[in-house]
């Protein structure tokens, strides 16, 4: 009887542990998409700042209560703004952020081509005498 009980306890414990670690993984996954505002170049998943710990707990609680990833992100954005998202949405305020690098790249390519085109000097015009001299030098 005791043995069966222990075995049962082991399996239940094991199942719970697996469940916990899956939850932890989800918390880390979502936390990795969110910026920690206290230490701005870290994610909530990475940071040990106390606010990041609180927010990780928030994510965990909300996951447990069945909220989706999108709902949790919306919760964060409602409080801290788009700035918390490492991948902010494309909207009028963030157009420059999303397209700026490509615009700069295009400008760069344009300038590069203009330079290259300008540098390509025309073929030198050689007279008959020049050609003969060159042929003699090359002999």
């Amino acid at each position: 009887m005791v043995r069966i009980f222990l075995l049962l306890a082991f399996f239940v414990g094991h199942a719970l542990a697996v469940d916990e670690s899956a939850l932890d993984r989800r918390v880390t996954e979502i936390g990795a998409e969110l910026r920690c505002l206290v230490c701005q170049n870290q994610t909530i998943a990475d940071s040990q700042a106390s606010l990041a710990v609180d927010l990780r707990n928030q994510i965990r609680e909300q996951l447990k209560s069945g909220k989706s990833e999108q709902e949790i992100k919306d919760y964060m954005v409602a409080r801290y703004g788009d700035f918390v998202l490492y991948r902010p949405p494309l909207k009028p305020a963030t157009v420059a952020l999303w397209l700026g690098p490509f615009v700069l790249l295009l400008i760069g390519i344009g300038l590069f081509y203009r330079r290259v085109a300008r540098r390509r000097a025309p073929e030198p015009q050689l007279s008959q005498a020049d050609r003969e001299r060159a042929a003699k030098l090359l002999e």
Binding site: L37, V38, L51, L55, R79, G81
Partner: peptide
Amino acid sequence: AEGRIGIDYGVYG
């Protein structure tokens, strides 16, 4: 004490 309301107000600094 737990900073729950702080989170609702978007407090970070």
